[in-house]
Design a protein around this nucleic acid. Structure first.
Length: 570
RNA sequence: GCGCCUGUAGCUCAGUCGGAUAGAGCACUCGCCUUCUAAGCGAGUUGUCGCAGGUUCGAUUCCUGCCAGGCGCACCA
């Protein structure tokens, strides 16, 4: 409750981009300030100006409810305030028309030529168009997946493999310095159990109770033995250790290969063991002691996490002297911070949501601000459907679905895209049959198809020698409603990227791309880009070719942020 | 018992800072390829935004309570 996820609010300062929405927002603020200065109005000036692209086209290109918002503090009727602002806004060269509607909405219609300038910005920005500066100078540590190296990556890990990677890209686009990190839980009982299971499989013995049962254990055992048959003759505990270490190395390598194949890259693979061998755990304990939140009770050493919203205190050192997993967690957090990360983001599965408060408390106990330095994103579980039925996942029954299985069934692009396009707090149902389809039901194809379609048009433009460089671009020629709609959608991209980064919600990029692709398809249906037959080449053809190129750039940039390919042909 | 997440069209789900007539895909009807990719476009039909209060000019959105489903509450890792 104390640290619920919803408490983390975006600070509202979106990236500084030179789009019309930002321009209008500043102008509205200026107009409001001017009215106050002239004594025509006395009200509070909001720090952020509400400005949106209205759903209804009759409401102009942009709409603001600012007059309604300040009406109360100004003590005036909203429509009167809107009238005051209208005067100043209409004087702007970019603005064609200002209407006041309903209770006091301000609807702004832009000059068409002014809207067309976005094409120039996009083409000049190239692959950097959409990038912002809202997180400039902020070092973010992004930890995700962090699976035990005792088995293959399953469906739950796969959601994070896609979303975590996309979030990393989005944060980078917002200017953050991102370190993607995979924490390897290579210490503790489960590793011993893993080693024992592999050895048992290799020796043809029964897998120990509570051991690892999957078929992959036998495969690992066979691989280990194949590589070094002598291991079968090693005696006693040494043999067990050998099996454990070799199987660990092989399994980790396999996870790394699978993720690499999936397009998810990590900067740091961080071993829990290294935390102990490097003295980081001792160091972490000292740091926490110095902050005064460590105490002894019943022979154990505790961290008083209840000081900061946890529901019970947590043990760092057991009465037997062993360090807990929680001790590693504290040391790891402190280590991340000391390596220079300002914000540590943890992406966890819903089955770990009970960790949120204790992780937040670690940050607070270390003297940090738990509302800034640490963020925990909880992802709900993924269900999978195939053949119209839910596939029940069970380790016992051996029906776990691995990342590899999913990719094999539907391909990397469809798997990544589908996992990313939903907010992580939504429990999602993944229908394998749908993901195999190449239709609108499968949005990844819809978006990719738009990209490939444009690529085809531009190839043809080259062939027909339609000039399509920026020098040949006259924005005033883009006057069709479809063109206007497309320009407006393109201009939204930087805002979408900025909000996706701030809210840690990469799915916004995917949803935006679907809208943009739809708008493009509509434009394509109604606006002929290239000359027909022996028709003369005109400046309008060039203007439209430029518009296509800009759209292709934005679709490509967006897909890049998701780690999904942008094909030239389909 | 306590805590977290979810509840929006027949199905799968969006819905930004509280805004105007709540959206998309699928499904169902019907149109559009002798010209740039029909993996596309257009038209039609579909709602107790879980329920009940509250906050206010305005609530799917914020607050409280309740109902339903999922998950979690270790000197395990």
């Amino acid at each position: 409750m104390l640290f619920s996820r919803k408490e983390r609010k975006p600070n509202g300062s979106l990236a500084q981009v030179s789009s019309h929405s930002d321009l209008l927002a500043t102008k509205i603020t200026a107009a409001l300030t001017a009215c106050v200065d002239r004594g025509e109005l006395s009200c509070e000036i909001p720090s952020t100006i509400s400005l949106e692209r209205p759903k209804n086209r009759d409401h102009g290109d942009y709409a603001s409810s600012i007059a309604l918002q300040v009406a109360k503090s100004a003590g005036r009727a909203p429509r009167e305030i809107a009238e005051l602002l209208k005067r100043d806004l209409e004087a702007l060269p970019e603005v064609a028309k200002v209407d006041i509607a309903g209770p006091g909405f301000i609807n702004i219609t832009l000059e068409r030529a002014s809207q067309g300038e976005i094409v120039r910005q996009i083409r000049q920005g190239g692959s950097n168009f959409g990038n912002g500066t809202s997180l400039n100078g902020v070092a973010v540590n992004l930890e995700f997946i962090s699976a035990n190296p005792t088995g293959p990556l399953h469906l739950g890990h796969t959601r994070w493999a896609a979303v975590g990677d996309a979030l990393g890209r989005v944060l980078s686009a917002a200017g953050a310095k991102v370190t993607r990190e995979f924490y390897i839980n290579d210490r503790g009982n489960q590793m011993d159990l893993f080693g024992a299971s592999v050895r048992a499989a290799a020796m043809g013995q029964a897998i120990p109770e509570d051991g690892y049962q999957g078929a992959y254990i036998a495969d690992l055992a066979a691989a280990v033995v194949a590589k070094d048959p002598g291991i079968l003759n090693v005696a006693g505990d040494l043999q067990f250790v050998e099996f454990r270490e070799r199987a660990y190395t092989a399994q980790l390598k396999s996870q790394q290969d699978v993720l690499d194949e999936f397009g998810t890259k990590f900067d740091v693979w961080f071993s829990e063991r290294s935390l102990h061998s490097s003295g980081a755990v001792e160091h972490g304990l000292e740091k926490l002691r110095s902050q005064g939140h460590v105490f002894e009770l019943d022979g154990a050493t505790w961290l008083r996490t209840t000081d900061y919203g946890d529901d019970k205190d947590r043990v760092l050192v057991k009465s037997g002297g062993e360090l807990t997993y929680f001790a590693s967690d504290t040391a790891y957090y402190i280590n991340k911070r000391e390596r220079g990360s300002d914000i540590c983001i943890y992406m966890l599965g819903a089955d770990h949501h009970g960790y949120v408060n204790r992780l937040k408390a670690i940050a607070a106990c270390a003297g940090d601000d738990p509302k800034y330095n640490i963020e925990i994103l909880i992802g709900q579980l993924v269900k999978i459907m195939e053949g119209g039925e839910e596939v029940k996942l069970s380790k016992r029954a051996g029906t776990i679905i691995t990342l590899e299985d999913l990719v094999e069934k539907v391909g990397v692009d469809a798997a990544r895209y589908t996992l990313i396009r939903y907010p992580v707090e939504t429990p999602m149902v993944l229908d394998v049959d749908v993901l195999k389809k190449r239709t609108n039901e499968n949005p990844v194809y819809y978006v990719q198809y738009a990209h490939a379609r444009i690529a085809g048009v531009l190839r043809n433009a080259q062939e027909l020698k339609v000039p399509d460089s920026l020098e040949d671009f006259d924005p005033a020629l883009l006057v069709h409603d479809r063109e206007n709609e497309l320009l407006g959608a393109l201009a939204e991209f930087p805002r979408v990227v900025a909000s996706a980064a701030e809210m840690r919600e990469p799915h916004r990029v995917a949803r935006y791309l679907e809208v943009l692709a739809g708008v493009y398809h509509g434009f394509y249906a109604d606006c002929r880009v290239l000359p027909l037959g022996d028709e003369a080449i005109t400046a309008t053809h060039s203007a439209r070719a430029n518009l296509c190129a800009a759209t292709k750039q934005v679709l490509g940039n967006g897909l890049q942020l998701l780690g999904v390919s942008a094909p030239e042909r389909m």
